[in-house]
Structures are given as structure tokens and as C-alpha cells.
Amino acid sequence: MNDITIQYDEMVQNALLSVVRDILQQTAKEGLPGDHHFYITFRTDNSDVKIPPYLRERYPDEMTIVLQNQFWDLLADDKHFEISLSFNRKKEHLYVPFSALIGFFDPSVDFGLHFHNNEVDVMEEDTEFPGIEQDDGATISDLVQKQDDQKAGEKSGDDGDNVVTLDSFRKK
């Protein structure tokens, strides 16, 4: 008998990454349909990630971006995606290899993927969402939905902070 084992975990991770790649490729061609929007969390300390130095300094380990209303130049191939987003009203270009992804979530349909990364495991059930009242039985998607609801209230004129902090996705 042979000592080689099938690497199921790696195969599943590759399949899940292909789902994100397909979604981003479709979005690049056709835009976001309906109410869909994406939270994408990635490792900023991955050597192949290309982001402006001030963002890497501010987010030395990981960063979550939101693809919703304003994004430009989305491109996705087999190995990475590129996108331009506005940070403090300045358009910045990001280059993210799929190997750096640790999370993908579309709250409009309560769909999320979590990628295993040897360096970090994020978005566990004990994840804290600052500024969001948390119920003991609340799931991650419930908390993200509360954040979305809070932001929707802010857009309608309520006072509040409309920034999603990375702390809400970090393991404590």
C-alpha cells in the first residue's frame, strides 16, 4: 500500500476559490445584479498582494473590502483579481491573488465562504462586531446584516459611523 493521501481540504479550498473567481469574473462583465454586494477579506501580508503603502501600514495583517456602489476596473483571472476602490475619496488600485483570500460574503443572499489560511482563521462564531448589539444566538451573517441595516439607517439621515472596521473580522 502507498502512504500518499488525497488532499481533500486543498481540493475543496480550490473549488471554493473558483466560485469566488467565477463570481468576480461575471461581475466584471455584467456588474452587480440586484442587491448583491460582497465583503472580501484578504491577507495584506501576503507577498503578492499589491496595495498602497498607507493601506498596508493601516492594515498590516488583513483587510476587508466591500464591492457595492463604487468600484472600478474590476478584473479577475485564474490567479488574482484587481480592482480600484475609493479610500478617503482617493481612487486606489488593489491587486489580490486568490491565495490571499480568507473570506467572501454576500449578505444579500446570506452566502459566505471562509478559506483556511495557515496563518489565520477568521470570522468564527465569537467574532466581535463593534457598534453592533450582539445576541448570544446571532450568527456571523446576522451580525453582518445588522451592520448593513445600521448603514442603511445612516444613509437615510441617521447619525453614525458608516465605516466597517476590520476589527469586526479579526479573531480575538
Rank of each mutant, 00 (worst) to 15 (best):
N2P: 01
T5H: 13
I6H: 01
I6Y: 12
I6S: 07
Q7P: 11
N14P: 09
L17G: 02
L17E: 02
V19N: 02
V19D: 12
D22K: 10
K29S: 12
G31Y: 00
L32T: 02
G34Y: 05
D35V: 01
H37E: 11
F38C: 02
Y39C: 08
I40Q: 05
F42D: 06
F42V: 06
T44D: 08
N46K: 02
S47W: 03
K50I: 12
P52Y: 12
Y54T: 05
L55F: 09
R56K: 13
E57C: 06
R58D: 00
R58T: 04
M63H: 06
I65Y: 03
V66L: 00
L67A: 08
D73R: 05
L74W: 09
L74N: 06
L74H: 00
A76W: 00
D78K: 14
F81H: 02
F81S: 03
E82G: 14
L85N: 11
S86E: 14
L94I: 04
Y95T: 13
P97W: 07
S99T: 07
I102G: 11
P107E: 03
D110N: 13
F111A: 11
H116V: 05
N118I: 00
E119T: 07
M123E: 13
M123K: 07
D126H: 15
T127R: 11
T127C: 15
F129P: 02
P130Q: 00
I132S: 01
E133T: 03
D136T: 05
G137L: 08
D142W: 03
L143R: 01
V144G: 04
Q145I: 08
K146F: 07
D149Q: 10
K151E: 15
A152H: 00
G153R: 12
K155H: 12
D158M: 14
D167V: 08
F169T: 01
F169C: 04
K171F: 03
K171W: 08
K171L: 08
